[in-house]
Simulated assay, not measured.
Amino acid sequence: MTDGSGAVGLTWIGQAGYAIEAPGGALCLLDPYLSEFALEELGLPRVAPIPLDPAATRADVVAITHTHHDHLDLTTCRALAGANPAVTFVGPSSIVARLLGRGIAPERIVTVERGESVTVGAFTFHGHYARHEVAGWLTEDALAYVVEVAGTRILHSGDTEYDQRCLAVAERGPFDVGIFVANGSGGNMHALEAALMATQLAPAVAIPCHYGMWAPEAYGSGHAPDGKPTLDPQLFAEACAKLDGPAVRVLELGERIDVLPAGVTIAA
């Protein structure tokens, strides 16, 4: 629900997924993983509860960064399409055939590639480079996004390793919020790399993501150079502080913050 302040609502819905609500109430779901799709396809049961029922959730646009199961959740997408006859799906061209295969009409899918921008209703999506190279699961068109809505800019790193090419997204700044993957395995940055990227891109507030969905061993053996496991978001927060980087918010599942062009405040 909008709070009447003109703020953009940002809610963590698990893993790398967020609900972005415009002041007028329009809703974007970014990488919503709201099912057991990874269990059905890969044998990975979620331990995090499902915060939204996709069959009963109103959504105007669903934005996808890449085709991995916890980002392009086809069970969730089909349920959202059924509950929202006008919902639009946005993402790289690799999502198209997969959505068509689940019965989603082509006119409801809008592609965006690296270096491209599309506007759907209240939301403008700028596609940028992400390097997500996983053996056997290559996602050559994986995206980072800058989402512009109501005068705010929200950066989502997408699933990515640390790469200087990712820093070119700075041209879209300054950012009111930056969301950074920090789990340290499966082709993703560890917490120290994510903190370095956050410091270099300098959002007003940085948020770590991509942890807590599965049991820790299901994420692989990713560790920071000091040997600490990187699934602890506090490691990201500590590293940002040591680097004199941005302020950090570690969100609880289902927690919402309100984003204003001048920064972030906690919802009342």
Rank of each mutant, 00 (worst) to 15 (best):
R131S: 13
L99Q: 00
V61T: 04
G173H: 09
A81F: 11
T88G: 08
H156K: 11
V205S: 02
G222T: 02
P51A: 13
I257R: 10
A63M: 00
E255H: 02
E41G: 03
V181H: 06
E148L: 08
A195C: 09
E255C: 03
A22H: 03
L201S: 04
L29H: 00
L138E: 13
E252M: 15
N188S: 14
I64F: 00
L30I: 03
S157P: 04
A79P: 11
A267E: 02
C240H: 02
M189G: 06
W12Y: 12
V147M: 08
Y129E: 02
A48N: 07
Y18S: 07
S93G: 04
A105Y: 04
L243A: 13
T88Q: 13
P85G: 10
V169H: 00
I50R: 04
A268L: 05
A105Q: 05
D226C: 05
Q15S: 14
H128C: 14
V62P: 03
F236M: 04
I20N: 01
H69Q: 14
P233E: 02
V110A: 12
L196Q: 03
T67F: 04
D258W: 07
A170R: 15
G151M: 02
L74R: 11
T265I: 07
P216D: 10
G212W: 04
G6Q: 06
G4V: 13
A267N: 03
G121T: 02
S185V: 02
H156D: 13
S157Q: 07
A267G: 08
T230C: 06
V110M: 12
E255W: 04
G227V: 01
H190D: 06
A16N: 14
G127H: 04
Q200P: 05
L196T: 10
R58E: 15
R58Y: 12
T11I: 10
